[in-house]
Write a protein that binds this DNA or RNA. Structure first.
Length: 544
DNA sequence: CACTGATGCGCG
DNA sequence: AAAGCGCGCATCAGTG
């Protein structure tokens, strides 16, 4: 059963019970804003329906703040985006509908500690939208996949809000100590940290340029060239090609500058409050279905500061990541038995054992090249050998690339489809819908995008299922009185769970078993494995 | 002054 | 200056 929540213009909330196709099972009930949370609490305890609402950040944070943790939802906005674009809904009213009010970015989460919260009205007519969606799904030849995808995407939205609420446990003291060790004591505003000044002095001396501004690429290129180091940019990779006394201190300076600017003291001041880092996660924020984030660069948390993620007293962090997720997903997508067999253990070692290439490094390079569309260099050269060993996998990505080059649409296993060329950049814009075959020079690039889309997008679906199953298992332990373990971080193919000490082993099992179940949900009984590295640590820096 | 695009680098 | 995908963010440099 579904229960739809709809915030009316008056601010009251309407609850409507629906069957799985969106038919009303009784009269709608309207409750005042002050009462809807208790109403949800009561119904969740009684019948645990699937809650349908326009946009999870408009509802779930307030429920969480009140201690109400719903089990399941349907995020109509996220589902709309998937169904409108999916090749599996052709012929439905939703398919390819003009951009409208449901095609907007997720709303900012409602402030839970404000004295007065002004609730925006729901997106227009959520009941009609839900029915359009159900019609599109139920008439689709890809129905089973879409049902799973919509459920997983919606559960992801719950997890995103819950992780924001939980926050990443963050030790300001450890972070400050790390910074001080690497950079020197925190300098006054506008001053360079001592360690950076030291490197800069050496660069300036080596280049004989006391006025050099190291933060200006243009100035730096000029200065390097004057010293006989002919570069056309200041990228690490290019600088490393040159032998000169200025290079090493310059690279060290740039590393430190990066740390200072991206995750230094001002980052700490801005983003860590009360021992927690609370980024906004944006489910479906990437066209492939991956999450994006905003605020504090959560998905780019450098390894150098991860030691500042420290479990609360009496708790540990269970850190798990999937080994070689994308190539394994490709093996499943393409039903490539040889590749699946190579992935029984370490996939890249397996490829070496298959005889396709000589070293693990080659296997990895070739595999990434296949999924990203390399044509030249080392990995481009190895592709034919990979194609001989794993013809089905290679054929799948080649086909996806050709489709994209011709302006066509490709889809993930569960049915998320790629945008049409020209539509991707405009996905947040409102009306203009420019689409067409890519213009010649861009065709190859679009082919690389669609080639990667099927793999990255299906891997994102695997990860959503993993997350959803794991969430269910953690909730079950809590319901059984074993203790409260919480997801606190998710990074494409990696999760961090904070668990009470005595639950560590159980949670480690949950994470592993969730991976097995995710594999089954996507690929059934296909002989695929998704091995995890699972570590129980006090701080995130000890993992990996 | 505010905005925009390019650059560079962190993550997967 | 990456070859080869997807992001977010800070900064610089040029423009309005």
């Amino acid at each position: 059963m579904i229960t739809l929540l709809h915030r009316l213009p008056s601010g009251d909330v309407e609850l409507t019970e629906l069957d799985a196709s969106g038919r009303a099972l009784g009269a709608a009930v309207v409750v005042a804003d002050d009462d809807w949370i208790d109403e949800v609490r009561r119904r969740e305890a009684a019948t645990a329906p699937r809650w349908a609402w326009d946009d999870t950040p408009r509802w779930h944070p307030r429920l969480l703040a009140a201690g109400v943790e719903v089990g399941r939802c349907l995020d109509l906005r996220l589902c709309h985006v998937i169904l409108r674009g999916s090749a599996a809904t052709v012929g439905s009213e939703l398919h390819g509908a003009p951009r409208g009010p449901w095609d907007v970015p997720q709303s900012a989460p409602v402030a839970t500690d404000a004295l007065v919260v002004v609730e925006p009205e729901s997106l227009p007519d959520p009941l009609a939208e839900l029915r359009r969606q159900r019609a599109a799904v139920e008439s689709s030849p890809g129905r089973a996949g879409l049902e799973l995808l919509l459920a997983a995407e919606s559960t992801g939205a719950l997890v995103a809000a819950e992780m924001h609420e939980a926050g990443v446990p963050w030790s300001t003291e450890v972070h400050d100590r790390l910074l001080t060790e690497l950079l020197g004591p925190r300098p006054a505003a506008g001053q360079r940290p001592l360690a950076m000044q030291h490197e800069l002095d050496r660069v300036r001396a080596a280049l004989d340029d006391p006025q050099l501004n190291p933060d200006s690429p243009a100035d730096l290129v000029r200065s390097l060239r004057r010293a006989g180091i002919v570069v056309s940019s200041t990228r690490q990779w290019e600088l490393q090609q040159h032998e000169h006394p200025a290079i090493e201190p310059l690279l060290r300076y740039k590393k430190l500058q990066r740390l200072l600017v991206a995750n230094g003291w001002s980052w700490l001041d801005q983003w860590v409050r009360g021992g927690r880092f609370r980024p906004e996660y944006v489910p479906g924020g990437v066209v492939t279905g991956r999450w994006a984030s905003s605020g504090g660069g959560a998905l780019q948390l450098p390894k150098a500061v991860r030691a500042a993620v420290v479990a609360d007293p009496g708790h540990v962090l269970v850190v798990a990541d999937v080994a070689q997720l994308e190539p394994r997903v490709l093996a499943g997508l393409a039903r490539d038995g040889a590749m699946a067999a190579a992935g029984a253990g370490d996939l890249y070692e397996g490829i070496v054992r298959s005889g396709a290439v000589a070293t693990r490094q080659e296997a990895k390079g070739a595999m990434l090249g296949a999924m990203y569309g390399a044509t030249r260099g080392e990995s481009g050269r190895l592709l034919p050998r990979l194609a001989r060993a794993f013809p089905r996998a290679m054929a799948l990505v080649e086909e996806a690339a050709r489709t994209g080059e011709q302006g066509g649409v490709v889809s993930t296993l569960l049915g998320r489809s790629s945008p049409r060329p020209g539509d991707a950049a405009a996905r947040d814009a409102f009306p203009p819908e420019t689409a067409g075959p890519p213009v010649d020079g861009d065709a190859r690039a679009w082919g690389r995008f669609t080639r990667n889309f099927v793999v990255q997008g299906t891997a994102a679906e695997w990860a959503l299922c993993w997350l959803g199953v794991l969430r269910r298992r953690l909730r079950a332990r809590e319901a059984a009185g074993e203790g409260r373990a919480r997801l606190v971080f998710f990074l494409h193919d990696e999760v961090v769970v904070q668990a009470p000490d005595d639950l560590a082993d159980a949670v480690a099992d949950d994470v592993r078993e969730a991976a097995v179940e995710a594999g089954r949900l996507l690929f059934g009984e296909a002989p695929l494995t998704f091995p995890l590295t699972v570590e129980v640590v006090r701080d995130y820096g000890q993992a990996g």
